[in-house]
Design a protein around this nucleic acid. Structure first.
Length: 723
DNA sequence: ACCAGGCTTCTTTTT
DNA sequence: GAAGCCTGGT
């Protein structure tokens, strides 16, 4: 029996409520993961078989952790528990059903780049210039459609604008191309099973009966397709538990729909709702800061987190001169705090809105020799060199995978280009054979030098193919890299960092070896699909003592003693694109809320007055800074803040206004202190010559030539002196 | 087929 | 400021 005494009363009640739909509205830090973990264990202890339980988490890492905690609670290993992300679960279902549903079992999963290259090709063949319709935009629309379970035919009802008809055709063709390539994109992993459940009621019945209990974490971030999938699988049993927090919904751009959680009570019959409002994570001040920020949002479910914990330290506001200055001050604050409070490096996290912000921190940390780990950013398996090798492997499992085929045959460069590929494609089409098989009959199409090049490529694939089953995946990958002379190619192509790239290849080979040892499966396709679904956070080792850097999005669900929310600036956070729409501003605010509520003991909010972005500048306190209540800031009132340094007055005041100042102003500083042609000194860039000048008063904008580089700078931010 | 060099554009956020 | 695109030359 599972001991539920460690739970508070509402937690326990929501765990014990197993007969009907259960909605757990759980604020940040109120123990929602705990509820899910205990509930799974409780179900098993009540005789439910692990394989009858479907538990959906937001990341693979969360799934792994939950599984191991369940085992810990039950004191026995739990086999065959269906726990994973929506995507991971759907891949498992697809593997089992693919052939019944008319797909190949060894399908490939296309990532964003792969998908876009398919769309690009299609747009090209239609002669549509990218100015008219960018592949990226098309992909966004398709993703949006898929997130809402909208088929190409229905797209015209769903979308608006003049080229919807065209886009819907491209969407349709895109689906056909993917099908021909035996590939699914990320969204298809959900859309296809949902579609097929509609088409094959008997397979739906099978899965519906299989899962007697369904649990979904982070329900506020599910999209329509996921909702429909859940609804279908739950069926009449009604044994579903969803856990979520409307204040932490931060994925609407990925189709997440708050309606799912807001409407849960009316969607299912006899729903019992539990609220978890006691926060066990954060101090009183942190919670107060978080609450006052999120209370600026409208349309929330009524909920107010409280805590028994002491008020603790106040939220520290750090105003910095530049992004470099911010990085330095954050890092030195971390050094100070770790001595003062006895925190380890892994007790801190640096959070930011965009991945690009990690750079200035990396520079400082590397210089100081402080170990750090970046979560997210360019994912390992999205690295060019990794994708190159994987492309070869993908062809082995799926000989129709056109995207990988093109990638592999052109890398390393071996004198085969679009023309030759087109001929192979056409030949394969005519003879109704796979691209891979077409290579074997290359002598029917080519002669001379091209023939020998094609044969050379084919030899690599053939020898890898022969190794399958007899040798490990790692050996096969190694064989490919050697036969293709890939290291040499890297050396030629990337002389300055080829060593790092070679290391990555070796890491890939090691990972393949480990995969085989761990799973006793020699399944290349399983490896490949698992690899496609690895999230940045999944490979993060929270045991290792290093400073962690990540985006606010990645931080969801995590907690740290000391949190730094950086770049809380105008023009950065809230992200400028969110200003189109008040709902988006509210989502940005929730993101800020998520950031604050990650903290147990200490929160620091920092912003730079001037940040180099896209070759120009932005900066100054964000509107969110002014939403932090003065009584929990370690600067009591804005007036005191004003008194300290004059420049702060401007930035704080601006932060309180709801306006975008990034626009250019027509008037100029005639007769003022900055004259075109004169020289100034900038703290970062050194001596420079003013070449142009616009704006007035606070907003004098200068164009200055430093060496041979021109920079645009707001005069008052630049701390300029005459030189 | 491939490369260099100049040009534009930018995708926040991620499974 | 970097990455990707196109162009024209080899």
């Amino acid at each position: 029996m599972v001991d539920l005494n460690a739970l508070n009363s509402s937690q326990r009640e929501s765990v014990e409520h197993i007969e009907y739909p259960t909605l757990v509205l759980a604020g940040a830090g109120s123990g929602k993961t705990r509820v899910l973990t205990y509930k799974i264990a409780y179900l098993v202890s009540r005789g439910i078989k692990p394989w009858q339980i479907l538990a959906v988490t937001f990341t693979n890492k969360a799934a792994r952790e939950m599984a191991s905690r369940v085992e810990h609670l039950l004191h026995i290993p739990v086999q065959n528990l269906w726990i994973g992300t929506f995507h991971g679960i759907c891949v498992r279902i697809l593997r089992r059903e693919a052939e019944n549903w008319g797909f190949r079992r060894d399908f490939t999963i296309y990532d964003e780049d792969d998908s876009i290259s398919v769309i690009k090709k299609d747009l090209k063949s239609r002669g549509i210039p990218k100015e008219q319709l960018s592949p990226y935009r098309v992909k966004n629309i398709i993703r949006n459609a898929k997130n809402n379970f909208v088929s190409p035919d229905k797209l015209t009802e769903f979308a608006y604008g003049h080229d919807v008809k065209l886009i819907s055709e491209v969407y349709k063709r895109y689906m056909e191309r993917l099908h021909a390539a035996g590939a699914f994109d990320f969204d298809d992993l959900l859309v296809r099973p949902l579609e097929m459940f509609g088409k094959y009621p008997e397979s739906l019945k099978k899965w519906k009966e299989k899962f007697s209990h369904i649990l979904v974490d982070e329900y506020q971030d599910t999209n329509r397709t996921q909702y429909l999938l859940v609804k279908l699988l739950v069926g009449k049993s009604g044994n579903i538990t969803v856990v979520g927090d409307d204040d932490q919904s931060i994925y609407s751009w990925r189709g997440a729909d708050l309606k799912n959680i807001l409407g849960f009570e009316s969607d299912f019959k006899r729903v019992k709702t539990f609220r978890l409002e006691e926060n066990y994570r954060s101090t009183g001040n942190i919670l107060m800061a978080a609450n006052s920020v999120v209370e600026n949002n409208k349309g929330r479910m009524s909920k107010r987190l409280w805590t028994d914990r002491p008020d603790g330290d106040k939220v520290k506001l750090l105003e910095c001169l530049s992004d470099q200055d911010e990085a330095e001050r954050v890092v030195s604050t971390i050094e100070k705090e770790s001595t003062k409070y006895g925190f380890k490096l892994r007790d801190f996290v640096v959070l930011y809105r965009t991945n690009a912000q990690s750079r200035s921190f990396e520079d400082v940390l590397r210089r100081k020799g402080i170990p750090y780990a970046i979560v997210g950013g360019v994912r390992f398996y999205e690295r060019m060199e990794i994708k190159d090798i994987l492309a070869y492997l993908r062809i082995l499992t799926n000989p129709n995978d056109i995207v990988s085929f093109i990638r592999a045959i052109t890398t390393p460069k071996r004198g085969i280009g679009p023309k030759t590929i087109e001929v192979i494609e056409k030949f394969a089409g005519e003879k109704k054979i796979s691209l891979f098989d077409a290579l074997n009959r290359a002598d029917e199409i080519f002669s001379g030098e091209i023939l020998s090049k094609v044969k050379e490529f084919n030899n690599i694939l053939q020898s890898a193919l022969k190794m399958r089953g007899e040798y490990g995946l790692d050996k096969i990958a190694q064989e490919i890299a050697e036969k293709a002379d890939y290291a040499k190619y890297l050396k030629n192509e990337y002389p300055d960092n080829f060593e790092e790239r070679v290391d990555n290849i070796n890491e890939l080979i090691t990972a393949m070896g480990e995969f085989e040892n761990m799973t006793d499966e020699d399944d290349l396709s399983t490896f490949l699909s698992e690899v496609s679904l690895v999230a940045g956070i999944d490979s993060w080792d929270d045991e290792y003592d290093a400073l962690t850097l990540m985006t606010l999005h990645s931080a969801k669900g995590l907690e740290f003693p000391s949190v730094f929310i950086t770049g809380v600036e105008r023009g950065l956070f809230p992200h400028p694109r969110a200003f189109d729409n008040n709902l988006d501003i509210e989502e940005e605010r929730r993101l800020f809320y998520v950031g604050i509520t990650r903290a147990e003991e200490r929160v620091h909010v920092s912003y730079a007055l001037q940040r180099a972005r896209h070759g120009s500048y932005s900066g100054g306190a964000s509107m969110f800074v002014s939403e932090l209540p003065c009584n929990v800031l370690d600067i009591e009132t804005p007036e005191q803040l004003y008194a300290k340094i004059p420049v702060r007055k401007q930035s704080i005041r601006r932060a309180m206004e709801f306006e975008d100042y990034s626009q250019e102003l027509p008037d100029s500083d005639e007769g003022g202190q900055y004259r075109v042609g004169s020289y100034i000194r900038h703290p970062v860039f050194g001596r420079g010559k003013i070449t142009a000048c616009s704006g007035s008063g606070d907003r004098i904008k200068l164009t200055i030539l430093f060496g041979n580089k021109e920079k645009k700078i707001l005069a008052k931010y630049g701390k300029l002196t005459h030189a």
